[in-house]
Amino acid sequence: MTTLAQKNGRTAAIAALIVLAMVGLAFASVPLYRLFCQVTGFAGTTQRADEADLPVQPTGKIINVRFDSNTNSALPWEFQPEKHVERTAIGARKMAFYRAKNLSDEPVTGTATFNVTPLQAGQFFTKIECFCFTEQTLQPGEEVRMPVIYYIDPAILDDPYAKDISEITLSYTFYPVDEPTAQS
């Protein structure tokens, strides 16, 4: 027979374990959410691949890719795509360019966030190379061209919710970085 003190001790231990699990889950939630979005394309998150992952053959079906750009008001940059719309064969590797110019008189580092709309297209929009993978530092008055190499996975044609999409928008927003990380 267990005593009241043993029952209270067991209850306290279980409560402490629950609190520890909740704290651990809170710290893990951001990386787990990011991983979930990357795997599923949830919320317009694009996929990432290297050259070896390219589809063998373009399908011949054409889709428009619209390019959008935004800058946080705290970042003294001009930032825009060179072309606003590009016709893209599904499965074909494509390259698009954005231009950024530092309008200030000091070096400024920015980082880009991105998404794809419609949201269900995110899991099929795959980037091979992108300026958004690293922080970008521009010297005073410097202007740069920044490439995005991408393709649209032919599996989009098999998805009942995405197969009829005729236009995908790739949108970037640049934000200032308070303390740039060392680039190796």
Rank of each mutant, 00 (worst) to 15 (best):
T137I: 06
H84P: 02
S171T: 14
T40K: 05
E179G: 07
N115A: 14
A43I: 04
A100N: 02
N72C: 11
C130A: 08
T134Q: 10
R93K: 11
G110D: 05
Q123A: 13
F79S: 03
I14L: 11
D105N: 14
R66G: 13
A92K: 09
S73Y: 05
T117M: 04
A15M: 03
I62H: 12
T169S: 01
A121N: 00
G91M: 03
R10Q: 10
Q38D: 15
F97K: 11
V144E: 05
G41E: 08
A121F: 08
C132V: 06
N72D: 15
L25S: 15
I152A: 06
L103G: 05
F133D: 03
Q57F: 03
E135N: 06
A12L: 06
P55Q: 04
N64A: 12
T71F: 10
Y161P: 11
Q6V: 12
A162P: 13
L138G: 11
R48L: 13
R10N: 02
I128G: 01
D105T: 00
E51Y: 14
S171V: 03
M22P: 09
R93S: 12
P58I: 04
D68A: 04
D53C: 09
D159G: 13
M22S: 15
T2W: 02
Q120D: 04
V23L: 15
C37T: 14
P176F: 12
L35R: 12
A182N: 00
V23N: 10
